[in-house]
Design a protein around this nucleic acid. Structure first.
Length: 376
RNA sequence: GGAGGAAUAGCGAAGUGGUCAAACGCGGCAGACUGUAAAUCUGUUCUUUCGGGUUCCGUGGUUCAAAUCCACGUUCCUCCA
């Protein structure tokens, strides 16, 4: 068994749960946030910096690594871990999200999905078998089934056909999978339709995967309440003894709401992308260091943050770096933002231990959203 | 001393009689970003009590109408002596 999830404790007042994941690189507690490193790099961070923010698993992408440098190069290097010199667990996304971000609906057939390479325009066919073959070669610790990630706005008819196909693809992924050191996760889809989420979850679980994820959320400017419903519709059918992964979600409040609903792991590009765009998470809300008011602010982003950026640099300096497009600025903010989310999941784990998850949420939101939260 | 050329918004630079408060880029000010085609994209950037007001080196002039044409001046650049 490449990974082993153990449920340690259920929180008293919600569906939140504390768990641990045993991997060949050590044991990690959940809930946990996974930084995204699409192209075999958490953008701007060295492996030492990834470790220093106390990241557990990180995520890389099948589609991107397929195009460049190619799975064969990674295999020759000795697998993803050796290639990127990262000695921690790695999850690879299947390219399913690229079905949403790159492909047009007409490019999706029973066989797979036709992409136009974003690098050189080459016509490419990604199938469940191909995705698994690539992930096998990449030798990640957790592979994801190749799914269609349909837009949230898809109608019932489309969504039903889509999840049926994704289920057939999941079965194909499972039979194609032959890397004994790699776990394989199934993906629940179904948009915001209660019966489709339930159906997708039940049928995916029947196929018996090493863990389950909920996909197709936070991808189409949907409302937060819709997104939370999609989780609520799916969770009851997922087994308690397996890891639950909410794909692509990473706004602080969404992580909290996800944890409350029984999610164990999250991934999101937000902390690193926001960093490159000059924004920083703080307990008092998200701030934009590009704003003129930080020009002479010689205090750290957050006095209560234990990250490298906050211990060593001021807002004024980081603002200057961002304004001057110096890479150190993006790097310091990436370290800070990832650490912020990871620290938040550490705090969430403590709150679960003390059965105080709702209090934690209230306290967090009161500071993060200020008066706006009290009005609700 | 002589001959040419140029002066446009914070900067660079289009525009060479009306459709010009003036393209575009940079800079400035804000906003967006959720399994990364994203160190990207969007808005805004003379002034205003939103009716308008005041602009294209300066001063006069031509014209119904001037950033645009004419005269003089100022400054800068190039070449010749």
């Amino acid at each position: 068994m490449p990974i082993n999830y153990e449920l340690i404790k259920k929180e008293k007042n919600t569906k939140a749960r504390l768990g641990s994941v045993k991997t060949s690189y050590g044991t990690y507690e959940t809930p946990m946030f996974m930084p995204v490193g699409t192209q075999a790099t958490v953008k701007t961070l060295s492996k030492e910096e990834i470790k220093e923010v106390n990241a557990g698993i990180i995520l890389c992408n099948t589609y991107h690594l397929w195009l460049r440098p190619s799975p064969d190069v990674v295999k020759k290097a000795g697998g993803l871990h050796k290639f990127m010199n990262f000695n921690g667990p790695i999850l690879t996304d299947s390219g399913g999200f690229q079905v949403f971000s790159l492909a047009k609906p007409k490019n999706i057939t029973e066989d797979g999905v036709t992409f136009k390479s974003h690098l050189n325009g080459d016509k490419l066919l990604l199938t469940p078998e191909k995705s698994i073959e690539i992930q096998n070669k990449l030798d990640s610790d957790i592979a994801m089934c190749f799914d269609e990630c349909p837009p949230a706005s898809a109608n019932y008819e489309y969504m039903k056909n889509s999840i049926e196909r994704t289920l057939r693809w999941a079965a194909r992924c499972k039979s194609a999978h032959n890397n004994p050191n790699q776990a394989l996760f199934g993906i629940v889809q179904g948009g915001y339709f209660e019966d489709l989420r339930a159906y997708s979850a039940k049928e995916t679980v029947k196929l018996d995967f090493d863990g389950y994820s909920i996909g197709g959320v936070a991808n189409d400017h949907e409302s937060k309440s819709d997104m939370y419903k999609a989780i609520d519709y799916s969770i009851p059918y997922l087994p308690e003894n397996k890891l639950r992964y909410l794909m692509g979600v990473g706004e602080p409040i969404d992580i909290i709401e996800g944890v409350i609903r029984g999610i164990d792991i999250f991934d999101c590009v937000l902390p690193t992308r926001l960093a490159r765009h000059g924004h920083a998470f703080t307990k008092d809300g998200k701030i934009n260091l590009k704003n003129a008011k930080y020009k002479e602010d010689f205090s750290p982003i957050s006095k209560e943050c234990d990250c490298y950026a906050c211990k060593n640099y001021t807002k004024a300096y980081i603002k200057h770096l961002i304004n001057a497009e110096e890479t150190l600025g993006a790097r310091l903010l990436s370290i800070h933002n990832i650490r912020f989310l990871i620290k938040m999941t550490e705090d969430l784990r403590n709150a679960i231990k003390e059965d105080k998850i709702l209090e934690f949420k209230d306290e967090f939101c009161r500071r993060y959203y200020g008066e706006d939260y009290d009005k609700e």
